[in-house]
Design a protein around this nucleic acid. Structure first.
Lengths: 240, 240
DNA sequence: CGCAGCATTGACAGGGGTCAATTGGCGTGG
DNA sequence: CCACGCCAATTGACCCCTGTCAATGCTGCG
């Protein structure tokens, strides 16, 4: 069976926390069920009780919340190797929805198994919490991004972030195309789809990105970084 | 010596996590130094190494981040009883600034002492992580608030949140006045000070709040809740 | 090859930002 | 106890960024 997903997760955890051989062995020994989900499938809905902790093998997923009058805000994006819901270990109900962005493959691990790892393996426990803390840090940067940067800069910043986060497990956005529609970008950035389109056009005029068909690709990472004044400190990628 | 602050913290932790007698005793045995800080004092700056974990005895504090061109965004507000920086246990450098909002009293505990609690007392470890997870959940709601609600609704939502969070340790905002200037409200909500003023005026016209002098007070919590479509699910106040 | 859904564009409007002047509250010093 | 000065709040004028609406192009898929 394909274990690439768990390897990616180990890679992610190792990027910020020191794990020993027996820690890694314990992760390898995890029992899980692999499933493939179509783009748009719900993995978890707001208010659901916590039962599983899915790990993302391939594809992208996201968390979102919805306003009473229908406004949707994406509050986190998850990438291959990410554990999708460590927090279920700690609270009874989900405070947001978790949904597949592209077609994805996930491994569902029973929450009790993760809890056992948390109790029995201090290094893993720490790695899990570091993971939660880093996601929170990314959330804070998003608050700054949405609250205090204009559309143009905001998009540039997001593209930088996705690039650097993908780089942690090997690839970056320079190589791949962005797996987000403009409507999803809009929900992610607190903008309207139309305005996202305008800003993307402006970024292309500046030579920072290329658009071909329905896909976006980074062309000049340096330009993008300087537009966004991007620093990757908040990703804590070399912290321990 | 005044132990009211640590009692408040125990109260906060107990509101979401079951702690036993010996857990509470371990907290009581913590060695700490009490300090008083003026409004505006920095407790921690972005990039600082992690050395201490302050607990807020009285007054309010906040986290903020700054854009390269000077825009400031407040990304969290902390209230009496809150531990201000559990996350320092897990990452090497601060990714944001931590500052006193009003005059405050804090107890500084050495990070090693908290780490020891984390390792030796599983219940406390869990309570600490739950605390981190809840702060992250609040951050997600703020993303929704800033990204998808207009100024008027956005302020109403914030006032509701502060009221309910204060209620966890006994008081609510109905009784007290809001300890935030309009400029701070602006930085908190991703608005301009002028627009905050306009929205507050509108909220007063609706009868939801009262303003006297420089202070804001909730007058009709029900009205405020229905304007903001407020639910306190994301505060996880009765989760375990 | 035709349809469905996303992307693109223009026109227009409004929420919210900016600037600047004025008011008002409150602490401080005389 | 009053006057002064500072800082926050308030207000009006103006404009731009961004949202909304609607029409038109694309493009990938069945």
């Amino acid at each position: 069976m394909n274990r690439r997903g768990l390897d990616l997760m180990k890679c992610k955890l190792l990027s910020h926390s020191p794990l020993e051989v027996d820690d890694l062995a314990a992760i390898d020994a995890l029992h899980y069920e692999q499933r493939r989900l179509e783009a748009g499938s719900y993995i978890l809905r707001e208010g659901d009780p916590s039962k599983i902790c899915p790990v993302l093998f391939s594809g992208f997923a996201f968390r979102h919340k919805i306003t009473a009058n229908g406004g949707r805000q994406i509050v986190a994006v998850k990438m291959p190797g990410d554990a999708l819901d460590f927090q279920s270990i700690f609270v009874r109900h989900a405070d947001h929805c978790l949904q597949a962005l592209t077609q994805i493959e996930i491994a569902t691990v029973r929450i009790e198994d993760i809890e056992r790892l948390f109790v029995d393996y201090p290094n893993i426990a720490r790695a899990i919490v570091v993971d939660i803390v880093i996601e929170a840090s990314i959330g804070r940067e998003w608050l700054l991004n949405i609250g205090r940067r204009n559309g143009f800069t905001r998009i540039a910043h997001l593209l930088c972030e996705i690039h650097f986060r993908l780089a942690i497990t090997g690839t970056g956005l320079l190589a791949d195309k962005l797996p987000l529609t403009q409507e999803q970008l809009a929900d992610l950035l607190g903008l309207s789809p139309v305005h996202v389109n305008r800003c993307l056009k402006a970024l292309e005029l500046r030579g920072a990105i290329v658009r071909q068909g329905r896909s976006v690709r980074i062309r000049d990472l340096g330009a993008l970084r300087s537009i966004a004044e991007f620093t990757d400190l908040y990703l804590h990628s070399d912290d321990s």
